[in-house]
Amino acid sequence: MIHAENVTMHFQTASMKEPFVALDHLSCSIPSGCIYGLVGANGSGKSTLMRLISGVYRQKSGSITIDGEEIWENPAAKARVVYIPDELYFLPQSNLHKMAQFYRSVYPSFSMERFEQLVKSFGLDKHASLNAFSKGMKRQAATILGLSTMAEYLLFDETFDGLDPVMRRLVKKMIYNDILERGTTAIITSHSLRELEDTCDQLALLHRGGIVFESDVERLKTSLYKAQVAFDTPFTKEKFEGLDLLSYDQLGSVATMILRGDREENERMLRALDPILCEFLPLNLEEVFIYETEALGYKFEEEATGGDRK
């Protein structure tokens, strides 16, 4: 398990007047054997958190541990983690084969067999210069190398964003196999919730250096739903007291609401009010995130246009 406790991280270059706070007293726990997704806008702190977990950065305060061990300057802990960054780097004038040799010398659990198998699956030429690869191919190469380390924790920083759908499915399959066979934990960051929806078990939303919302995907999908009801007599919102309403919108005799709680119980309560129309509609994950975060008081659209948090 990866545990972050009250982690703060800020950056200040020589030309900056004030430091930029990348992570602000962040705490989270990432259980072993899961696929954990981190979603957030640019500058929300996703990559910073990944770099802290992989031991590249050192937090200004707080602690980050892997199974109770601090990561910073701990080769044994770092050997259990492989970080595939958003901006890739390969050794100069190298090809996949040379990079594999380097990784093999660096990571004690690196498997050449796995490497060969993955190279074959992805269809890349391991002796071709990496400089000649396209951006997508480089991401594939980095993924191959990362998976071949047989590390317990795989950190993919916006890696999937650069892969085509076929490769994305292949990588997901590799990760699932690793999880099932070795109990690997994968942490994936992305801008796109839709991207992570199909892949991750758990999701967390980062905003301005903190985790705003964290939950497992299945629970998220079933936690909220949309209901539309209509009555032949005038009514107001008070009619629905007793229901856990996240959002309410009424247009004439039709009310649309977002409800939390047991669906059958809520349906029973609504039908008891004798509506002329009562329909339940599913929400996608994006909509769930939006309503949940609005309930927490985050108005992202207003913030983007200069509004304040409630």
């Binding site: 770099r51 992989s54 031991g55 590249v56 300057e73 080769p75 044994a76 770092k78 050997a79 970080y83 960054p85 901006e87 890739l88 780097y89 660096v106 990571y107 004690p108």
Partner: peptide
């Protein structure tokens, strides 16, 4: 360079090593 620096600081060795 940031990405090179991150790479060499991510490998499982101490900085002293």
């Amino acid at each position: 360079k940031r990405r090179e620096s991150d790479f060499f600081h991510s490998i499982p060795y101490t900085r002293t090593c």
